[in-house]
Write a protein that binds this DNA or RNA. Sequence first.
DNA 1: ATGGCAATGTTTCATTGA
Length: 259
Amino acid sequence: MKIASWNVNSLNVRLPRLLAWLDRQRPDVVCLQETKMEDSRFPEEVLREAGYASCCYGQKTYNGVAILARNGLDIGAVQYGVPDYADPQARVLAATVCNIRIVCFYVPNGQAIGSEKFEYKMQWCRQATRYLQETLAAYTYVAVAGDFNITPDDRDVYDPEIWQGQVLCSDEERAVFQSWLTLGFQDSFRLFDQPPAVFSWWDYRQLGFAKNHGLRIDHILLSGKLGATCIASIVDREERKGDKPSDHAPVIVTLKEDK
DNA sequence: ATGGCAATGTTTCATTGA
C-alpha cells in the first residue's frame, strides 16, 4: 500500500502532471495541498475516470487540500478542518481509508519569525497538536501527510548556516514538530537510512533545483502501529523536473499489506 | 545592495509562497 503527499501549487495548473504521476506511481492514497480552488471547481470526475475517488476542502486563490483514494477504496468519515477551530483557511482534511485515518495537513508558512503570519502559524500548530491528540485517541492507525513547512533538523536544510533561526528552521517550529512525534508518531523518512541532502521543496528562483538548494518540509508521519508496517519512504524528485513542475516534489511511503 | 520564480485575482501590478 502506497500513501503519498504532494503540494501541487495549483491543481488547475498541475492537473496534467498529477494525472501522469498517478499513472506512473499508482499510489493508493494521495494527500494534496495548495489546490487553490473552490470545491465546485474540483475535478472530481476527471480524477474518477483516472481511477481515483476524492474528497476536497478548498478555497479560491490560496490553500486548499484534498484526499484521493484509488477506485474501490472507500473514503469514509470525512472531516473538514480542525473541530472547534474556526480557521478561515482551508488547511486540514481527514478521512478514513482502509481502516487508516488519513490526515492531510497544510501547515502555514509563517513568512518570517515575529510576523503576524508567524503568530498565526504557532497558534495553528497549537490547535493541530490538540487535533492530533484527539485523532490518536480515536484511531489505531493514523497517517498525517502534508506540507508541514518545518524542517525537522539541519539534515533537512541545504545550507543550515544560512537558514539558522529562519522561518521553517527555527527552534520554536522544530520543537512543535518534535512534540508531534512525542505524541506517538514517527517521521517515516527517518525510519530508514537515507542519503544526505534529500529535500522535498526547491525555490523556483536562482536555479534552486539544479543546485539542489532545497528543504525537506513535506512529511508523512505514521502512528506507532502503522510505522511498524512501513517498508519504504522516499521523495519522488523526478516530479520536480521538466515543464511546469510544482516547487514541491511528492513524498511516498510504502506499507506492508498485512498490517 | 537587490532580487531573482510562479500562480492568482485585485491583472499589466500586488500578494503570497518558502
